[in-house]
Design a protein around this nucleic acid. Structure first.
Lengths: 342, 342
DNA sequence: AAGAAGAGTGTAAGCGCTTACAATTTTGGC
DNA sequence: GCCAAAATTGTAAGCGCTTACACTCTTCTT
């Protein structure tokens, strides 16, 4: 019954008594196929356990049945969550997901863009997770013919879902200010240039706006790139402690960076909130335990949402291109690493 | 200069003045190609920025240029580390990596094996990360024609790299016993049947052996499946606290499960090592901060190592099949969650 | 009731590669 | 130098699918 060799479209054609062409159309729900033919084909395909060869389909100009996820790293909590959620959506849609982790290496990103043409014949679409893109890179991607969607990016010409980063940062910072802190530092995530499309840029804006609201100015010395890892946060905080003046409160780009900051403080005999108040963004599973004040965001939901958007685009590829931007809700959670400044 | 259309093997053939066939052979370093032809082809290919279409190659019987990573989850620390390290190796070898996360769903694994034939024409090989496999599934995989390698599995008929899980668990447990504890519970990771190929099974063996060494017996009530997540550890420990007798020490399958256990204890007003001593395995980045005693293992190294093994297999596919098993070193790290029992 | 328009289906030409197998050139032994 | 064996290169037939285009029936028009 089960042949060791995979059923081909040919087999389906023979079994259903129709031509290969009709089978191909029926299988892809194209118009101009009678209901009778349609059901015959479906029956035959089911009976044979037929699934189209993605290689052949791709070669002949069809779709590849896979999409790429581009992520700065696969290990940080936020990204791992988003990747897994998106992978689930793609898998449920019968799509393979190829993972490309930039790992902070410029060379990898370069390779990615250098081989965009190649990539575009291996995948149908691309899901970007908070990837730092230049204008020309955005243009390249938009012109690549690939379907594109993203998580946590701003002002990009494709579907995006994220949180209102600027506002989340504003909330976190305002919380600190509201507690009477006025000497603040920020562990700012990734380095971000003017007009960056990344969330770290937005969060920095929110931080600055909150200070401005209190007639405070941002001291450049108290903005330190931490990346989004524990170790990055630790190094950034160490730098702050060792070479700059110690603020009374720190707003960290994300919870893991905040954990790192807490670690650095401990290494120096400091603790939160006694020495310094600390707040992050994420609500990482460890944050409750660490007593970390934070702004919670739904990460898996963002990944799944964006993935769904991408799948929809793929399904009606002829629909008009009207990039949508979706914000999911965040919520300030006050715990024990922040307290009133006397 | 740069054509919007991708260069094909045809273009390379024309530029180099050779036939498509020779080009194909030269590109793949097959024998029977003169050095002169070889270099001509390489030059032409480089000049055109040529890269073979994986779809066409695959269709014609060649390789796909991608490999699949099968992981129980992409979010747990251990797996995220291994995935990223492997992905780096594959990327450096010019291979795409398609990610398949089982997410604990039997249906996903079922789909995976159901479509093994399909998968085998989309990827050249499979890297398994501590995947729970039945004998028949192992047989299927071995017969699939795919190259296979794994991380953290035992007695499998393909290359594997991991740690000596049995011994690591023995060490952790012996540490507890050596401190005078004799009433021990274990958060045992994934549920594992007899003859399981998973690390949780090995670790349970190591735990049992250590007890046996001290003429202690394992009480089934004190073996609780925790999975490898924080939340799983928390639930398992809650179960222990609420419905079973509280031991004086707990050996957790991994650090994240241990964190969860610590959380559960805190929820019940307990703490380590005062109420219960706790030890894990991994040396997670947070473990230092948490003061968690643990057995450190090099996770990224394992992923990279296994990935390299797989790549090598792919490269000389005709080499004899002699599955190798590699153990990387572990190291007991004593911190503050374990202390002498009076 | 004849012809146009449309719906449904089939034919055949690739997509870019690999790989028998055939053709050609080179090498080496005498 | 001559011929067989070995080394190199070319020819052509697919791999399984999509798609332009041709063809055959149905439906409507008028």
């Amino acid at each position: 019954m089960v042949k060791s060799h995979r059923a081909t479209i040919q087999d389906v054609a023979v079994l259903s008594g129709l031509s290969i062409c009709t089978v191909s159309r029926a299988l892809r729900n194209l118009p101009n196929v009678s209901e009778k033919a349609q059901s015959k084909v479906m029956d035959a395909a089911a009976k044979l356990g037929y699934k189209a060869s993605s290689a052949a389909a791709r070669l002949a100009g069809g779709s590849t049945g896979s999409i790429a996820i581009i992520t700065p790293t696969a290990t940080a909590w936020y990204f791992a969550q988003a990747v897994e959620a998106a992978e689930e959506v793609f898998g449920d849609s019968g799509l393979d997901t190829v993972l490309i982790s930039l790992r902070g290496k410029a060379s990898v990103k370069q390779k990615f863009f250098g081989d965009l043409l190649g990539l575009s014949q291996r995948v149908d679409g691309v899901l970007l997770l908070n990837v730092d893109l230049s204008d020309s890179e955005i243009a390249l991607l938009a012109a690549s013919g690939l379907a594109v969607a993203s998580v946590g990016m701003t002002s990009v010409p494709w579907d995006n879902v994220g949180i209102d980063d600027e506002n989340a940062a504003w909330e976190a910072t305002s919380h600190l200010l509201g507690l009477g802190h006025w000497d603040l530092a920020v562990l700012s995530g990734a380095e971000s240039h003017e007009n960056s499309v990344m969330s770290s840029s937005e969060r920095l804006k929110g931080f600055s706006r909150a200070l401005k609201d209190h007639d405070l100015t941002v001291h450049p010395d108290l903005i330190i790139n931490s990346g989004s890892t524990i170790d990055g946060g630790r190094k950034a905080m160490n730098e702050l402690i060792a070479h700059r003046s110690l603020p009374t409160a720190v707003f960290a780009y994300c919870d893991e960076a905040a954990f790192g900051a807490l670690m650095a403080m401990r290494e120096h005999g400091l603790s939160a909130p006694k020495s310094v108040s600390v707040i992050g963004i994420d609500d990482h599973p460890m944050s409750w335990f660490m007593g970390l004040s934070t702004v919670a965001q739904p990460v898996a939901d963002q990944g799944a949402f964006a993935a769904n958007l991408l799948v929809e685009r793929l399904q009606n590829a002829d629909a008009p291109n009207d990039p949508s931007n979706h914000f999911l809700d965040t919520k300030l959670i006050e715990r024990k690493t922040t307290r009133r400044q006397r």
